[in-house]
């Protein structure tokens, strides 16, 4: 067992984990933050995307020990108390989810891409959003409204 500590959603957390523990296991099973999902076992679906030190990563493809000392943000960290994050509102208003399983990963990926495009000054248009979602799979195949939700939120966040 190894002692790890990190900041999750602005709160200092620590725990003793086996070195083989995946970051997503630590988040879900130790911290009981079950908004981050595991949709596949092959690093492809993106349901587990969280931000580590400000960058979107697949938490099923990173060990918890690798993230020790880092700042992690999960879907639970986006809303400000009772006020939803603009992306959460946009997904609600644009019917951006059907079963909802992929939604946490979609929203965390969207938050990352919006921030990156804003920082670089390039335009996040529909084509760019679709390319950026390459690592996120929606098995309801509801991509159209997911893309619209992200476009809507990006406009409101600019």
């Amino acid at each position: 067992m190894t002692s790890i500590s990190m900041s999750v959603n602005g709160k200092a957390v620590s725990g003793d984990v086996e070195d083989r523990t995946l970051l997503v296991q630590f988040i879900r099973e130790d911290l009981r933050l079950t908004g981050t999902h595991v949709g596949c076992d092959t690093s492809q679906c993106g349901a587990c995307v969280v931000h580590v030190d400000g960058k979107a990563v697949k938490s099923c493809t990173m060990l918890a020990v690798q993230a020790s000392g880092s700042e992690v943000t999960t879907i639970e960290g986006l809303a400000n108390g009772g006020d939803l994050h603009p992306l959460q509102t946009a997904f609600k208003e644009n019917h951006g989810l059907q079963c909802g399983f992929c939604t946490p990963g979609m929203i965390m990926s969207a938050a990352d891409m919006i921030a990156r495009y804003k920082a670089s000054g390039s335009k996040l248009d529909e084509k760019a959003i679709r390319e950026e979602l390459e690592g996120n799979i929606c098995r309801c195949t509801g991509y159209h409204n997911i893309v619209r939700s992200i476009e809507d939120a990006a406009a409101k966040m600019s």
Binding site: G46, K55, A56, V57, K58, M113, E134
Partner: peptide, 9 residues
């Protein structure tokens, strides 16, 4: 390579 999340790591 891969997707944006993979490219970050």
């Amino acid at each position: 390579i891969g997707d944006p999340h993979v490219r970050h790591m």
